[in-house]
Design a protein around this nucleic acid. Sequence first.
DNA 1: GCATCCTGGTTGAACTCTCAACAAGGCCCG
DNA 2: CGGGCCTTGTTGAGAGTTCAACCAGGATGC
Lengths: 160, 160
Amino acid sequence: MRWLSAEEQQVWRGFRTAVTKFTEHLDRQLQRDSGMPMAYYEILVALSEAPGRALRMSELALNCHSSRSRLSHAVAKLEKEGWVERQACASDRRGSIARLTDRGFAVLETAAPGHVSAVREHLFDVLTPAQLDSLREISRAVENGLQTECAQARAELAEF
Amino acid sequence: MRWLSAEEQQVWRGFRTAVTKFTEHLDRQLQRDSGMPMAYYEILVALSEAPGRALRMSELALNCHSSRSRLSHAVAKLEKEGWVERQACASDRRGSIARLTDRGFAVLETAAPGHVSAVREHLFDVLTPAQLDSLREISRAVENGLQTECAQARAELAEF
DNA sequence: GCATCCTGGTTGAACTCTCAACAAGGCCCG
DNA sequence: CGGGCCTTGTTGAGAGTTCAACCAGGATGC
């Protein structure tokens, strides 16, 4: 068992702190100014970018890095607000398609500027171009590491 | 209103994805192997490092980047598990002191190796030393940016 | 055809977090 | 002292997430 060195701990805790505070800031901003958490905002964004502003639930879950269950609850709430509509899927009768309503799109248009400003102000404005490059690489490496991990887990499961 | 350029969006989304998947992975690992979410784990860690394994709630909240309310609920749960005890604060009768029990410490000792392994495997093992340096700087810059922001907000409030 | 398994999606319960409201102790100043 | 005001910590309600269970429809193999 290898513990973290003092240096590693410092990096790890600093990273945790920064990410926690940053995402909390964004979440609070969005909740305060637009009455929705970031997870819901991202659903609206994903839908707004899809052809016809509609996606199957499973596609939407992938785009939002969300579990099926979470998405199902979230879309139910968004539907109650009138920002999203559900309709049946023609090609697969199990399927369910979420579509952004005009009202939902309008809400998104209202919410976006404040959110983008917050991201710009606290991420892009405080980092140098070199740091941004670095951040891109770091993100890719971490995500890659998780991918292979998941693949491994799947492989292990397949053994049984 | 300046939107994000295509490059900026790429960085931002990649970062979001990596962080989300990474923290979800860690959270699931802890929950599965030790029956607690990462937020609770961090409370136990903070207490274990404090002199006498005890801290006032407000200190603990600072160390864990947690709101008072969240911490209060969390400690209530941890107390129910028998991992933490609350006792009155002698110097300030409003105060409440949380102390890690022996049982709580034992649980932490059991949980730590798996958690540390997960962090090492998916963070330190996938990044080069240069990237780690970079990550430290990035974290610091982002946190700094938020600090000044909070200070600004406080200053604005003070105007009224 | 039909038994089996897999996939897509929903649901309910338990849990965690947030926010606002609140109690109660400290602090300060007239 | 006694009135405001700030700080500490808790509480309850409401919102969001997780997990396991489930239904229904597709896919596969006999």
